[in-house]
Design a protein around this nucleic acid. Structure first.
Lengths: 234, 234
DNA sequence: ACTTTTATGATAGCTTTACTATTACATATA
DNA sequence: TATATGTAATAGTAAAGCTATCATAAAAGT
Protein backbone atom coordinates (compact mmCIF):
# COMPACT_ATOMS: atom_id res chain seq x y z
CA UNK A 1 0.00 0.00 0.00
CA UNK A 2 1.53 3.27 -1.14
CA UNK A 3 0.18 6.38 0.54
CA UNK A 4 1.68 9.69 -0.43
CA UNK A 5 2.61 11.10 2.94
CA UNK A 6 2.26 14.83 2.66
CA UNK A 7 3.38 16.76 5.66
CA UNK A 8 2.01 20.24 6.20
CA UNK A 9 4.74 22.01 8.16
CA UNK A 10 4.05 25.12 10.20
CA UNK A 11 6.74 27.75 10.54
CA UNK A 12 5.87 28.67 14.11
CA UNK A 13 5.26 26.96 17.44
CA UNK A 14 1.71 27.57 18.58
CA UNK A 15 1.93 24.15 20.26
CA UNK A 16 3.98 22.94 23.24
CA UNK A 17 4.46 19.37 21.95
CA UNK A 18 4.18 18.46 18.30
CA UNK A 19 0.70 16.94 17.96
CA UNK A 20 1.44 14.97 14.74
CA UNK A 21 4.14 12.94 16.43
CA UNK A 22 1.98 11.01 18.93
CA UNK A 23 -1.29 9.13 18.90
CA UNK A 24 -2.73 11.37 21.62
CA UNK A 25 -1.63 14.47 19.72
CA UNK A 26 -3.38 13.35 16.54
CA UNK A 27 -6.55 12.52 18.46
CA UNK A 28 -6.46 15.99 20.04
CA UNK A 29 -6.38 17.51 16.55
CA UNK A 30 -9.07 15.37 14.96
CA UNK A 31 -11.44 15.56 17.92
CA UNK A 32 -10.97 19.29 18.46
CA UNK A 33 -11.91 19.85 14.81
CA UNK A 34 -15.07 17.81 15.36
CA UNK A 35 -15.94 19.49 18.65
CA UNK A 36 -15.28 23.09 17.57
CA UNK A 37 -17.38 22.49 14.47
CA UNK A 38 -20.15 21.09 16.66
CA UNK A 39 -20.11 23.51 19.58
CA UNK A 40 -18.47 26.64 18.21
CA UNK A 41 -15.21 27.97 19.62
CA UNK A 42 -16.77 29.76 22.61
CA UNK A 43 -18.49 26.65 23.96
CA UNK A 44 -15.49 24.42 23.23
CA UNK A 45 -13.31 23.61 26.28
CA UNK A 46 -10.33 21.36 26.97
CA UNK A 47 -12.43 19.55 29.56
CA UNK A 48 -15.04 18.56 26.97
CA UNK A 49 -12.30 17.65 24.49
CA UNK A 50 -10.55 15.43 27.05
CA UNK A 51 -13.80 13.67 27.90
CA UNK A 52 -14.39 13.04 24.19
CA UNK A 53 -11.00 11.41 23.62
CA UNK A 54 -10.97 9.57 26.95
CA UNK A 55 -8.03 11.52 28.33
CA UNK A 56 -7.62 14.35 30.81
CA UNK A 57 -7.56 18.12 30.70
CA UNK A 58 -3.98 18.18 31.97
CA UNK A 59 -2.83 15.96 29.12
CA UNK A 60 -4.31 18.31 26.53
CA UNK A 61 -2.54 21.20 28.22
CA UNK A 62 0.76 19.45 27.55
CA UNK A 63 0.17 19.89 23.83
CA UNK A 64 -1.37 23.37 23.77
CA UNK A 65 -1.02 26.22 26.24
CA UNK A 66 -4.70 27.15 25.82
CA UNK A 67 -7.56 26.82 23.39
CA UNK A 68 -6.65 29.99 21.52
CA UNK A 69 -3.27 28.52 20.56
CA UNK A 70 -4.99 25.35 19.42
CA UNK A 71 -7.20 27.46 17.14
CA UNK A 72 -4.11 29.24 15.82
CA UNK A 73 -2.63 25.83 15.03
CA UNK A 74 -5.74 24.59 13.22
CA UNK A 75 -6.24 27.76 11.19
CA UNK A 76 -2.53 27.98 10.32
CA UNK A 77 -2.62 24.36 9.22
CA UNK A 78 -5.57 25.20 6.96
CA UNK A 79 -3.78 28.14 5.32
CA UNK A 80 -0.60 26.09 4.83
CA UNK A 81 -2.68 23.29 3.33
CA UNK A 82 -4.54 25.72 1.05
CA UNK A 83 -1.27 27.30 -0.03
CA UNK A 84 -0.06 23.81 -0.94
CA UNK A 85 -3.31 23.10 -2.83
CA UNK A 86 -2.97 26.34 -4.78
CA UNK A 87 0.63 25.46 -5.67
CA UNK A 88 -0.45 22.04 -6.95
CA UNK A 89 -3.24 23.44 -9.07
CA UNK A 90 -1.11 26.06 -10.83
CA UNK A 91 2.01 23.98 -11.44
CA UNK A 92 2.93 23.48 -15.09
CA UNK A 93 0.52 26.28 -16.07
CA UNK A 94 2.32 29.11 -17.80
CA UNK A 95 -0.39 31.56 -18.74
CA UNK A 96 -0.61 34.11 -15.89
CA UNK A 97 -4.39 34.61 -16.24
CA UNK A 98 -5.00 30.88 -16.24
CA UNK A 99 -2.79 30.57 -13.15
CA UNK A 100 -4.77 33.16 -11.23
CA UNK A 101 -8.09 31.64 -12.29
CA UNK A 102 -6.97 28.25 -11.01
CA UNK A 103 -5.73 29.77 -7.77
CA UNK A 104 -9.09 31.43 -7.12
CA UNK A 105 -10.84 28.16 -7.91
CA UNK A 106 -8.59 26.37 -5.43
CA UNK A 107 -9.55 28.83 -2.70
CA UNK A 108 -13.26 28.34 -3.23
CA UNK A 109 -13.26 24.58 -3.78
CA UNK A 110 -10.14 22.94 -2.31
CA UNK A 111 -11.93 21.89 0.88
CA UNK A 112 -14.59 19.98 -1.10
CA UNK A 113 -12.28 17.31 -2.46
CA UNK A 114 -12.92 13.78 -1.31
CA UNK A 115 -9.56 12.36 -0.38
CA UNK A 116 -7.95 14.03 2.62
CA UNK A 117 -4.32 15.13 2.69
CA UNK A 118 -3.74 13.66 6.15
CA UNK A 119 -6.02 11.00 7.54
CA UNK A 120 -6.67 12.49 10.96
CA UNK A 121 -7.90 15.90 9.68
CA UNK A 122 -11.34 16.26 8.12
CA UNK A 123 -10.81 19.16 5.75
CA UNK A 124 -14.49 19.92 5.24
CA UNK A 125 -15.03 20.32 8.96
CA UNK A 126 -11.86 22.37 9.25
CA UNK A 127 -13.10 24.56 6.39
CA UNK A 128 -16.34 25.24 8.29
CA UNK A 129 -14.30 26.17 11.35
CA UNK A 130 -12.21 28.57 9.28
CA UNK A 131 -15.38 30.21 7.89
CA UNK A 132 -16.77 30.84 11.35
CA UNK A 133 -13.74 31.25 13.61
CA UNK A 134 -10.60 32.17 11.68
CA UNK A 135 -10.71 35.94 12.20
CA UNK A 136 -10.60 35.32 15.96
CA UNK A 137 -6.97 34.23 15.69
CA UNK A 138 -5.80 37.78 14.95
CA UNK A 139 -8.58 39.85 16.53
CA UNK A 140 -6.99 39.83 19.98
CA UNK A 141 -4.94 42.20 22.10
CA UNK A 142 -1.92 39.91 21.59
CA UNK A 143 -1.97 40.25 17.78
CA UNK A 144 1.33 42.15 17.60
CA UNK A 145 3.37 39.78 19.75
CA UNK A 146 1.81 36.73 18.09
CA UNK A 147 2.64 38.26 14.72
CA UNK A 148 6.24 38.59 15.88
CA UNK A 149 6.21 34.91 16.78
CA UNK A 150 5.23 34.10 13.19
CA UNK A 151 1.67 32.93 13.96
CA UNK A 152 0.23 34.42 10.76
CA UNK A 153 2.99 33.46 8.33
CA UNK A 154 0.92 30.84 6.54
CA UNK A 155 -1.80 33.34 5.65
CA UNK A 156 0.77 35.96 4.65
CA UNK A 157 2.56 33.46 2.42
CA UNK A 158 -0.63 32.60 0.56
CA UNK A 159 -1.58 36.26 0.27
CA UNK A 160 1.86 37.06 -1.11
CA UNK A 161 1.74 34.17 -3.59
CA UNK A 162 -1.59 35.43 -4.92
CA UNK A 163 -0.32 39.02 -5.00
CA UNK A 164 2.65 37.94 -7.14
CA UNK A 165 0.24 36.21 -9.53
CA UNK A 166 -1.67 39.46 -10.02
CA UNK A 167 1.57 41.35 -10.63
CA UNK A 168 2.45 38.79 -13.32
CA UNK A 169 -0.71 39.93 -15.12
CA UNK A 170 -0.47 43.64 -14.40
CA UNK A 171 2.80 44.83 -12.82
CA UNK A 172 1.37 48.32 -12.53
CA UNK A 173 -1.55 47.43 -10.26
CA UNK A 174 -0.82 49.29 -7.03
CA UNK A 175 -2.70 47.17 -4.46
CA UNK A 176 -1.94 43.48 -5.05
CA UNK A 177 -1.70 42.48 -1.38
CA UNK A 178 -4.69 44.57 -0.33
CA UNK A 179 -6.71 43.01 -3.14
CA UNK A 180 -5.70 39.48 -2.25
CA UNK A 181 -6.18 39.78 1.51
CA UNK A 182 -9.63 41.19 0.69
CA UNK A 183 -10.40 38.33 -1.70
CA UNK A 184 -9.15 35.61 0.67
CA UNK A 185 -11.36 36.96 3.45
CA UNK A 186 -14.29 37.59 1.11
CA UNK A 187 -14.17 34.02 -0.23
CA UNK A 188 -14.98 32.83 3.29
CA UNK A 189 -17.29 35.64 4.30
CA UNK A 190 -19.55 35.17 1.30
CA UNK A 191 -19.92 31.46 2.06
CA UNK A 192 -20.76 32.27 5.67
CA UNK A 193 -23.23 34.98 4.63
CA UNK A 194 -24.85 32.66 2.07
CA UNK A 195 -25.61 30.24 4.88
CA UNK A 196 -26.44 32.56 7.77
CA UNK A 197 -27.09 36.10 6.54
CA UNK A 198 -28.33 35.63 2.97
CA UNK A 199 -29.54 39.20 2.50
CA UNK A 200 -25.89 40.30 2.49
CA UNK A 201 -25.09 38.48 -0.74
CA UNK A 202 -26.47 37.23 -4.05
CA UNK A 203 -24.52 34.00 -3.58
CA UNK A 204 -27.17 31.51 -2.65
CA UNK A 205 -27.10 28.17 -0.83
CA UNK A 206 -29.77 26.68 -3.04
CA UNK A 207 -28.00 26.96 -6.37
CA UNK A 208 -24.39 26.58 -7.50
CA UNK A 209 -23.03 28.06 -4.29
CA UNK A 210 -19.33 27.63 -5.00
CA UNK A 211 -19.58 28.37 -8.70
CA UNK A 212 -21.30 31.67 -8.00
CA UNK A 213 -18.73 32.56 -5.38
CA UNK A 214 -15.93 31.77 -7.81
CA UNK A 215 -17.54 33.87 -10.55
CA UNK A 216 -18.04 36.81 -8.20
CA UNK A 217 -14.43 36.72 -6.99
CA UNK A 218 -12.91 36.19 -10.44
CA UNK A 219 -14.86 39.14 -11.79
CA UNK A 220 -13.87 41.29 -8.82
CA UNK A 221 -10.18 40.47 -9.22
CA UNK A 222 -9.90 40.65 -13.00
CA UNK A 223 -11.89 43.85 -13.37
CA UNK A 224 -9.64 45.43 -10.73
CA UNK A 225 -6.37 44.40 -12.34
CA UNK A 226 -7.25 44.54 -16.02
CA UNK A 227 -10.09 47.05 -16.31
CA UNK A 228 -10.28 47.13 -20.11
CA UNK A 229 -11.16 43.55 -20.81
CA UNK A 230 -12.98 42.35 -17.72
CA UNK A 231 -16.14 40.39 -18.14
CA UNK A 232 -18.27 37.98 -16.16
CA UNK A 233 -17.51 34.86 -18.17
CA UNK A 234 -13.70 34.79 -17.96
CA UNK B 1 -28.00 76.58 23.96
CA UNK B 2 -29.30 74.63 20.99
CA UNK B 3 -27.90 71.15 20.59
CA UNK B 4 -29.19 69.08 17.70
CA UNK B 5 -30.32 65.97 19.52
CA UNK B 6 -29.84 63.11 17.10
CA UNK B 7 -31.12 59.81 18.32
CA UNK B 8 -29.69 56.66 16.81
CA UNK B 9 -32.50 54.15 17.17
CA UNK B 10 -31.88 50.43 17.03
CA UNK B 11 -34.52 48.17 15.59
CA UNK B 12 -33.86 45.29 17.99
CA UNK B 13 -33.54 44.71 21.71
CA UNK B 14 -30.05 43.48 22.55
CA UNK B 15 -30.48 45.26 25.89
CA UNK B 16 -32.74 44.55 28.87
CA UNK B 17 -33.18 48.20 29.90
CA UNK B 18 -32.70 51.06 27.47
CA UNK B 19 -29.24 52.41 28.31
CA UNK B 20 -29.82 55.90 26.80
CA UNK B 21 -32.66 56.63 29.18
CA UNK B 22 -30.72 56.68 32.46
CA UNK B 23 -27.52 58.18 33.79
CA UNK B 24 -26.20 54.72 34.79
CA UNK B 25 -27.12 53.33 31.37
CA UNK B 26 -25.17 56.04 29.57
CA UNK B 27 -22.17 55.51 31.85
CA UNK B 28 -22.29 51.79 31.09
CA UNK B 29 -22.11 52.61 27.36
CA UNK B 30 -19.36 55.22 27.53
CA UNK B 31 -17.19 53.28 29.98
CA UNK B 32 -17.60 49.96 28.19
CA UNK B 33 -16.41 51.63 24.99
CA UNK B 34 -13.34 52.87 26.87
CA UNK B 35 -12.66 49.54 28.59
CA UNK B 36 -13.17 47.30 25.56
CA UNK B 37 -10.88 49.56 23.56
CA UNK B 38 -8.30 49.36 26.35
CA UNK B 39 -8.50 45.66 27.29
CA UNK B 40 -9.96 43.99 24.21
CA UNK B 41 -13.27 42.15 24.34
CA UNK B 42 -11.89 38.91 25.82
CA UNK B 43 -10.33 40.60 28.86
CA UNK B 44 -13.32 42.90 29.36
CA UNK B 45 -15.72 41.81 32.15
CA UNK B 46 -18.80 43.28 33.81
CA UNK B 47 -16.96 43.18 37.12
CA UNK B 48 -14.19 45.44 35.80
CA UNK B 49 -16.77 47.70 34.14
CA UNK B 50 -18.76 48.02 37.38
CA UNK B 51 -15.61 48.89 39.33
CA UNK B 52 -14.78 51.57 36.75
CA UNK B 53 -18.15 53.30 37.00
CA UNK B 54 -18.45 52.84 40.78
CA UNK B 55 -21.41 50.52 40.51
CA UNK B 56 -21.94 46.79 40.88
CA UNK B 57 -21.91 43.80 38.56
CA UNK B 58 -25.57 43.11 39.34
CA UNK B 59 -26.55 46.60 38.22
CA UNK B 60 -24.82 46.17 34.86
CA UNK B 61 -26.62 42.86 34.40
CA UNK B 62 -29.90 44.76 34.69
CA UNK B 63 -29.06 46.55 31.41
CA UNK B 64 -27.45 43.73 29.42
CA UNK B 65 -27.88 39.98 29.69
CA UNK B 66 -24.17 39.41 29.05
CA UNK B 67 -21.15 41.05 27.49
CA UNK B 68 -21.88 39.60 24.07
CA UNK B 69 -25.22 41.42 23.90
CA UNK B 70 -23.50 44.61 24.99
CA UNK B 71 -21.09 44.20 22.05
CA UNK B 72 -24.04 43.60 19.71
CA UNK B 73 -25.54 46.85 20.99
CA UNK B 74 -22.34 48.87 20.48
CA UNK B 75 -21.62 47.47 17.00
CA UNK B 76 -25.25 47.90 15.91
CA UNK B 77 -25.17 51.46 17.15
CA UNK B 78 -22.05 52.04 15.06
CA UNK B 79 -23.66 50.68 11.87
CA UNK B 80 -26.84 52.69 12.45
CA UNK B 81 -24.74 55.79 13.02
CA UNK B 82 -22.65 55.12 9.90
CA UNK B 83 -25.80 54.55 7.86
CA UNK B 84 -27.02 57.93 9.09
CA UNK B 85 -23.66 59.55 8.19
CA UNK B 86 -23.79 58.08 4.70
CA UNK B 87 -27.34 59.39 4.24
CA UNK B 88 -26.25 62.89 5.28
CA UNK B 89 -23.28 62.94 2.95
CA UNK B 90 -25.22 61.90 -0.15
CA UNK B 91 -28.33 63.99 0.36
CA UNK B 92 -29.00 66.55 -2.38
CA UNK B 93 -26.48 64.82 -4.63
CA UNK B 94 -28.09 63.59 -7.82
CA UNK B 95 -25.25 62.08 -9.82
CA UNK B 96 -25.18 58.35 -9.00
CA UNK B 97 -21.37 58.06 -9.30
CA UNK B 98 -20.85 61.06 -7.07
CA UNK B 99 -23.29 59.57 -4.55
CA UNK B 100 -21.37 56.29 -4.37
CA UNK B 101 -18.03 58.06 -4.12
CA UNK B 102 -19.31 60.09 -1.17
CA UNK B 103 -20.75 57.00 0.48
CA UNK B 104 -17.41 55.19 0.28
CA UNK B 105 -15.68 58.26 1.67
CA UNK B 106 -18.15 58.31 4.55
CA UNK B 107 -17.33 54.70 5.39
CA UNK B 108 -13.60 55.31 5.51
CA UNK B 109 -13.65 58.69 7.27
CA UNK B 110 -16.90 59.22 9.21
CA UNK B 111 -15.37 58.16 12.52
CA UNK B 112 -12.65 60.80 12.24
CA UNK B 113 -14.90 63.82 12.56
CA UNK B 114 -14.42 65.98 15.59
CA UNK B 115 -17.87 66.65 16.94
CA UNK B 116 -19.65 63.58 18.26
CA UNK B 117 -23.26 62.74 17.43
CA UNK B 118 -24.08 61.89 21.04
CA UNK B 119 -21.97 63.19 23.87
CA UNK B 120 -21.51 59.94 25.81
CA UNK B 121 -20.14 57.92 22.87
CA UNK B 122 -16.58 58.46 21.65
CA UNK B 123 -16.89 57.52 17.97
CA UNK B 124 -13.16 57.12 17.39
CA UNK B 125 -12.88 54.60 20.21
CA UNK B 126 -16.01 52.84 19.01
CA UNK B 127 -14.51 52.73 15.51
CA UNK B 128 -11.40 51.00 16.87
CA UNK B 129 -13.65 48.48 18.66
CA UNK B 130 -15.52 47.81 15.42
CA UNK B 131 -12.21 47.23 13.57
CA UNK B 132 -11.08 44.65 16.08
CA UNK B 133 -14.24 43.06 17.46
CA UNK B 134 -17.21 43.53 15.13
CA UNK B 135 -17.05 40.17 13.34
CA UNK B 136 -17.44 38.46 16.73
CA UNK B 137 -21.06 39.59 16.88
CA UNK B 138 -22.09 37.18 14.11
CA UNK B 139 -19.38 34.51 14.37
CA UNK B 140 -21.20 32.53 17.04
CA UNK B 141 -23.35 29.42 17.21
CA UNK B 142 -26.37 31.64 17.94
CA UNK B 143 -26.06 33.60 14.66
CA UNK B 144 -29.30 32.26 13.18
CA UNK B 145 -31.53 32.94 16.17
CA UNK B 146 -29.93 36.35 16.72
CA UNK B 147 -30.47 37.12 13.05
CA UNK B 148 -34.16 36.25 13.52
CA UNK B 149 -34.26 38.70 16.43
CA UNK B 150 -33.06 41.44 14.07
CA UNK B 151 -29.59 41.85 15.64
CA UNK B 152 -27.89 42.50 12.28
CA UNK B 153 -30.50 44.75 10.68
CA UNK B 154 -28.37 47.88 10.93
CA UNK B 155 -25.54 46.31 8.94
CA UNK B 156 -27.97 44.84 6.41
CA UNK B 157 -29.66 48.21 5.95
CA UNK B 158 -26.36 49.92 5.19
CA UNK B 159 -25.32 47.10 2.87
CA UNK B 160 -28.62 47.36 1.03
CA UNK B 161 -28.39 51.15 0.75
CA UNK B 162 -24.96 50.82 -0.83
CA UNK B 163 -26.13 48.00 -3.10
CA UNK B 164 -28.95 50.21 -4.41
CA UNK B 165 -26.42 52.94 -5.15
CA UNK B 166 -24.41 50.55 -7.30
CA UNK B 167 -27.56 49.47 -9.15
CA UNK B 168 -28.30 53.13 -9.88
CA UNK B 169 -25.00 53.20 -11.78
CA UNK B 170 -25.20 49.78 -13.39
CA UNK B 171 -28.54 47.97 -13.04
CA UNK B 172 -27.05 44.92 -14.74
CA UNK B 173 -24.32 44.25 -12.18
CA UNK B 174 -25.26 40.86 -10.71
CA UNK B 175 -23.60 41.02 -7.27
CA UNK B 176 -24.40 44.39 -5.64
CA UNK B 177 -24.93 43.05 -2.11
CA UNK B 178 -21.98 40.67 -2.27
CA UNK B 179 -19.79 43.52 -3.48
CA UNK B 180 -20.95 45.89 -0.77
CA UNK B 181 -20.73 43.43 2.12
CA UNK B 182 -17.21 42.69 0.88
CA UNK B 183 -16.35 46.39 0.69
CA UNK B 184 -17.81 47.23 4.10
CA UNK B 185 -15.77 44.47 5.71
CA UNK B 186 -12.67 45.26 3.66
CA UNK B 187 -12.79 48.93 4.66
CA UNK B 188 -12.25 47.84 8.27
CA UNK B 189 -9.96 44.90 7.60
CA UNK B 190 -7.50 46.98 5.61
CA UNK B 191 -7.27 49.53 8.42
CA UNK B 192 -6.67 46.74 10.92
CA UNK B 193 -4.07 45.10 8.67
CA UNK B 194 -2.32 48.44 8.08
CA UNK B 195 -1.82 48.73 11.81
CA UNK B 196 -1.15 45.15 12.85
CA UNK B 197 -0.32 42.98 9.81
CA UNK B 198 1.16 45.44 7.32
CA UNK B 199 2.48 42.79 4.93
CA UNK B 200 -1.13 41.99 4.00
CA UNK B 201 -1.75 45.38 2.42
CA UNK B 202 -0.16 48.29 0.59
CA UNK B 203 -2.22 50.68 2.71
CA UNK B 204 0.29 52.09 5.12
CA UNK B 205 0.01 53.72 8.53
CA UNK B 206 2.81 56.15 7.83
CA UNK B 207 1.29 57.93 4.82
CA UNK B 208 -2.24 58.99 3.88
CA UNK B 209 -3.79 55.94 5.50
CA UNK B 210 -7.43 56.78 4.93
CA UNK B 211 -6.91 58.37 1.53
CA UNK B 212 -5.16 55.22 0.28
CA UNK B 213 -7.89 53.03 1.70
CA UNK B 214 -10.54 55.17 -0.01
CA UNK B 215 -8.68 55.04 -3.32
CA UNK B 216 -8.27 51.27 -3.12
CA UNK B 217 -11.96 50.71 -2.35
CA UNK B 218 -13.25 53.20 -4.94
CA UNK B 219 -11.15 51.54 -7.62
CA UNK B 220 -12.30 48.09 -6.54
CA UNK B 221 -15.97 49.09 -6.65
CA UNK B 222 -15.97 51.15 -9.83
CA UNK B 223 -13.89 48.72 -11.84
CA UNK B 224 -16.28 45.95 -10.82
CA UNK B 225 -19.45 47.82 -11.74
CA UNK B 226 -18.30 49.82 -14.76
CA UNK B 227 -15.40 47.88 -16.21
CA UNK B 228 -14.91 50.03 -19.31
CA UNK B 229 -14.08 53.34 -17.72
CA UNK B 230 -12.51 52.42 -14.39
CA UNK B 231 -9.36 54.23 -13.37
CA UNK B 232 -7.44 54.97 -10.20
CA UNK B 233 -8.17 58.68 -10.03
CA UNK B 234 -11.99 58.69 -10.13
C1' DA C 1 -49.63 62.81 52.07
C1' DC C 2 -49.36 58.00 51.36
C1' DT C 3 -48.69 54.00 48.97
C1' DT C 4 -46.66 51.55 45.27
C1' DT C 5 -43.58 50.93 41.82
C1' DT C 6 -39.06 51.23 40.00
C1' DA C 7 -34.00 51.87 40.09
C1' DT C 8 -29.88 51.08 42.34
C1' DG C 9 -26.68 49.14 45.67
C1' DA C 10 -24.68 45.66 48.73
C1' DT C 11 -23.81 41.00 49.81
C1' DA C 12 -23.54 36.47 49.04
C1' DG C 13 -23.49 32.48 46.55
C1' DC C 14 -23.16 29.03 42.72
C1' DT C 15 -21.39 26.84 38.50
C1' DT C 16 -18.15 26.62 34.98
C1' DT C 17 -13.86 27.80 32.83
C1' DA C 18 -9.11 28.08 32.59
C1' DC C 19 -5.15 26.70 34.32
C1' DT C 20 -1.41 24.56 37.66
C1' DA C 21 0.98 21.70 41.03
C1' DT C 22 1.81 17.29 42.61
C1' DT C 23 2.13 12.65 42.41
C1' DA C 24 1.98 8.04 40.15
C1' DC C 25 3.27 5.13 36.62
C1' DA C 26 5.52 3.22 32.69
C1' DT C 27 9.34 2.91 29.67
C1' DA C 28 13.96 3.63 28.11
C1' DT C 29 18.71 4.04 29.08
C1' DA C 30 23.35 3.77 31.69
C1' DT D 1 19.64 -2.20 39.28
C1' DA D 2 19.42 2.63 39.39
C1' DT D 3 17.89 6.66 37.19
C1' DA D 4 16.30 9.64 34.05
C1' DT D 5 12.39 10.80 31.06
C1' DG D 6 7.96 11.01 29.07
C1' DT D 7 3.04 10.62 30.04
C1' DA D 8 -1.20 10.51 32.59
C1' DA D 9 -4.36 11.03 36.70
C1' DT D 10 -5.78 13.62 40.87
C1' DA D 11 -6.72 17.42 43.00
C1' DG D 12 -6.72 21.57 43.51
C1' DT D 13 -7.07 27.38 42.79
C1' DA D 14 -8.60 31.79 40.88
C1' DA D 15 -11.37 34.12 38.06
C1' DA D 16 -15.43 34.54 35.03
C1' DG D 17 -20.11 34.52 34.42
C1' DC D 18 -24.08 34.55 36.31
C1' DT D 19 -28.33 34.74 39.96
C1' DA D 20 -30.88 35.60 44.17
C1' DT D 21 -32.02 38.31 48.09
C1' DC D 22 -32.68 42.24 50.74
C1' DA D 23 -32.28 47.22 51.83
C1' DT D 24 -32.97 51.77 50.45
C1' DA D 25 -33.95 55.80 47.90
C1' DA D 26 -36.25 58.19 44.38
C1' DA D 27 -40.19 58.60 41.27
C1' DA D 28 -44.87 57.92 40.13
C1' DG D 29 -49.60 57.14 40.91
C1' DT D 30 -53.86 57.91 43.74
Amino acid sequence: MTTTSINIRLTHKSYLREPESTELGRRIISESVRLIDELGFEQFTFKKLAAEIGSTEASVYRYFENKHKLLVYLVSWYWAWLDYSVTLRVQNIDNPRERLIRAILAITTAAQEDDPTVDYIDERMLYRIVLAESTKVYHTKEVDSENQDGYFMEFKNLCDRMARMTLAINPAYPYPHALMSTVLEAAHQQMFFARHLPSLTEICEAQHLREENTTFLKHLVFSAIEPQEANLTT
